[in-house]
Design a protein around this nucleic acid. Structure first.
Lengths: 253, 253
DNA sequence: CGCACCTTTGAATGAGATCAAAGATGGTGG
DNA sequence: CCACCATCTTTGATCTCATTCAAAGGTGCG
């Protein structure tokens, strides 16, 4: 599915834009990243971008929309690992495995910026700081997965749902959503269940409880507003780790 | 296990040895890595190497022994994220966060090779392929955590215990343990429970069931032998991902 | 307007937790 | 080398949180 009418790339690469949130890119780095990406591509909601056990050809940066990565278990159930928003890098497992261990699915209509593993290798070879920064970002991703594991493994159903809400809000705020604004969460309760290790039915009950206790507010179309941020975070054992430390990186080229 | 043709020099860097399992290091890379590490250090079993919410000063490669990384939840329970054996890199979160999100504890007596983040940065700056390889290894680590999340979130107690056993066996075999040998697993059932999101009591019941059904054999001192590898893996939904793909890396310097 | 899909609610069931206590095991010091 | 103590494993009984099954409202899209 090609973006209708060919896409407009306003000079900057999606990856460069994402990385520049963490460090100030040198001219050389900027130039190398600009040559990295192909034309951006759009997918309809529900589209499968990368399939489990298939060899993906490229990686992506999310330009817009929501996606999730998941695995399907032998018993028919599904575990959602992570939700991906604007600026997130998709397909990193391709840097370690020929076949993707996970499926990446568009939750809403999305636009992605693809780039090849080989070109990324060339960029890293020329600009080692970019490799180090990607390493840092991947480490952060791993830690966020660890947080979810702790949540799913060792907390109550209600705390798991709360933790997911906290995570979504923290990440959306980092993308610029005002602190007190409602967020439109395009997830079904089944998807929330697959992310938290619960059934859709039980997600529903927990959610209603969280609303009844005045922690969040829900409106039509999945809009959610945080009413008691601190209490929700405390219940959920949530720690915001959206910012990363880049003080150690090698000098840019 | 070592890279064909790659020789392991006694006293050489632990990190170099680990990396040389995946690629053939150039002379320059080898030299840079040899200058990386300080003297190796030993800890008694039970020792805490890195504490949650404390700023660690260095990273480590495991020379010998078992460790685990865990987080403590507000409700007093603990989630073990990962067990670490010979060759594993500890403390990677330091590449993204000033304070460690997890505690690293020695399960047995251990010997570790410490190295500083700043020196690692210098090595990556000079030898970008090492940065890319570390990126690949970290991605693999993330995928293994995702596998555990799927196991804990979406499978039965018995399947979770089976999956952990499969993982341990797969990793030990990669370190050279013969395919049919018994392995001494130095973990208490409480630790297995903290890794799988179960209580020690329930781990015990599952374990006995797995023994009764002829999938494994247990002897004194925690020795375990796999009797029906295939059936255990099938029950556990286990996929061996111990090898990583390094075909994409940039050229060495 | 009608049909999918999603949310909500209720009742019954079950997997795993909790509580309690009796064996094993192994390390330590006398 | 043995006795003792701490830690770990095993077993049983009971309880609870989340699942399962079922069906009735909502909502939005074509």
């Amino acid at each position: 599915m090609r973006h209708p009418g060919g896409s407009v790339i306003l000079g900057a690469s999606c990856l460069a834009e994402r990385l520049s949130h963490h460090v100030r890119l040198s001219a050389g780095e900027q130039a190398a990243l600009d040559g990295l990406e192909e034309q951006s591509r759009s997918f309809r909601r529900g589209a499968v971008i990368i399939s489990e056990n298939q060899p993906p050809r490229e990686l992506y940066v999310v330009r817009s929309g929501w996606l999730h990565s998941s695995v399907l278990l032998g018993n028919g159930s599904r575990q959602i690992m992570h939700f991906h928003f604007q600026g997130d890098i998709l397909g990193l497992p391709l840097l370690a495995f020929a076949d993707s261990p996970e499926t990446i699915t568009a939750v809403t209509d999305v636009t992605l910026c693809p780039f090849s593993r080989e070109r990324l290798a060339a960029v890293i070879g020329e600009h080692p700081r970019i490799g180090a920064l990607l390493l840092g970002l991947t480490v952060a991703d791993r830690v966020s997965l660890a947080d979810r594991l702790a949540s799913v493994g060792r907390t109550s159903a209600r705390a798991r749902v709360s933790a997911l809400l906290c995570e979504i809000f923290a990440r959306m705020r980092r993308l610029g959503t005002p602190h007190d604004a409602a967020i439109q969460i395009p997830l079904t309760q089944e998807e929330i269940g697959d992310a938290t290790g619960l059934t859709a039915v039980h997600v529903n009950r927990m959610m209603r409880g969280i609303v009844e206790d005045g922690l969040i507010e829900r409106h039509n179309g999945g809009h959610v507003r945080l009413l008691d941020d601190a209490r929700l975070a405390a219940e959920a054992n949530f720690v915001d780790r959206t910012g990363i430390d880049t003080g150690w990186l090698p000098p840019p080229r």
